[in-house]
Nucleic acid binder design. Structure first.
Lengths: 220, 220
DNA sequence: CGGCGTGTTGAAGACTTTCAACGTATGTGG
DNA sequence: CCACATACGTTGAAAGTCTTCAACACGCCG
């Protein structure tokens, strides 16, 4: 893995980034491993620099609901909370930076710039959460998938140039848990969308036929 | 209406509150009236001091999804955004305070205390949004309603002492739009819960039978 | 009293869920 | 190198839930 450390992804090239970076410890987490559990004391804050992380909560019905999929440049939880409000697990191998909470908070309080960045981050997360609410409120499995893919495509595009091919590093179960569907339902709906030529399913992702409905969907 | 203006609800008794209050203009909005529309330039920020406001986005299917129900002490939208990300409308008569955006932002930037309060607020909103995601991901109409009522009960309890009786100032359609259900489904599920003695439906709210499932639900 | 917005109930249809079986892929050991 | 085990993904059929369209009940106000 060769790329920018979290601090620079989050702050850009700046003094804040350098200061932030000094308090961080690099950690590599193998695929599938749990990073933290809901309810644990958040003595460390985690910033993601490479890979994808699922953030989830248990459902009353026994399953789990994925409340967010974290991408490089994002904190796995707001650094200001005392306890983690959801669990986090690596999807594929993941690289992250660990910050001692006290040091990070001190840094944030001492830097209006950093605090403002954090506020912006919270704002983006809130927007993502609301987009997910809209997606879940929608009923139809096919529409949910299309909304999810559009959302995912936009987020991925913001990271790399992107081509036709949209990578989906997570398993079907993760997508289902994100969409509030059973995995069989998801699988069937994906097959239907492929039959309609809206998407093409490839090994670890999909190819979107922008000409079709995908483009016609409200761009959130 | 006789109560605390928004600034004091948001900041508590403090210098920040007084400064904030000086830039505000009190506005009373009649029941049902739209306060702002998604996409409009957010030249003003709005703080709610009395009543309930629904915040919603249109659905691809033509309906609408309520992404939040605002209560006194809350901003209707993050003051830092340039454009409103959702529409807002009054449920019942509402009192709010209007802040010119530039003045408010200047104030926020000049006061770490205020910025920290705003970050806390964003955090609470994020938590509420995630709770809603969990609620929507759940499938069953009855469980959704119970989760909604538990959530609402906790939020109301934080404002007034609260009794057995839980007021529901919004219409059925609003609840349905919040829960991602049709209004007929909501109505039927409510009737079922009443038949099971879990709730009792009264004129403008419900009475919860804490002894039953309501208490048994994970407290989010 | 009549009208309209709101809330409830009914019956048929559509969709998702459930439980089960079957494919496919990957990695390890013989 | 092949065989097998295991994890992941797809497909089938029946059952359950929500949705749809319709009719009806209730309450408030002119």
């Amino acid at each position: 893995m060769a790329h920018l450390p979290f601090s620079y992804l989050f702050c850009g090239e700046s003094i804040a980034a350098r200061e932030l970076h000094r308090t961080a410890a690099r950690v590599v987490v193998p695929a599938g491993k749990t990073i933290f559990l809901e309810g644990e004391r958040a003595d460390s804050a985690f910033g993601l620099s490479e890979g994808t992380v699922r953030l989830f909560k248990p459902l009353p019905s026994g399953g789990r609901q994925i409340v967010a999929l974290a991408l490089p440049g994002e904190f796995l939880e707001m650094p200001t909370v005392e306890r983690f409000r959801q669990s986090a697990a690596a999807i594929g191998e993941v690289e992250l930076y660990r910050f001692p909470r006290d040091q990070l908070l001190a840094l944030i309080w001492s830097s209006p710039k950093l605090m403002s960045l954090l506020l912006d981050f919270a704002n983006r997360q809130l927007e993502l959460a609301h987009d997910q609410v809209v997606m879940l409120g929608n009923g139809s499995a096919e529409v949910r998938i299309l909304l999810f893919l559009a959302m995912w495509r936009d987020r991925i595009a913001a990271l790399k140039p992107s081509q036709q091919y949209l990578p989906l590093p997570m398993m079907r179960q993760d997508i289902a848990d994100f969409l509030g569907l059973r995995l069989e339902t998801l699988s069937r709906a994906l097959a239907k969308l492929e039959a309609k030529n809206v998407i093409r399913i490839v090994p670890k992702g999909v190819v979107l036929n922008e000409s079709d409905q995908t483009a016609a969907l409200p761009h959130l």
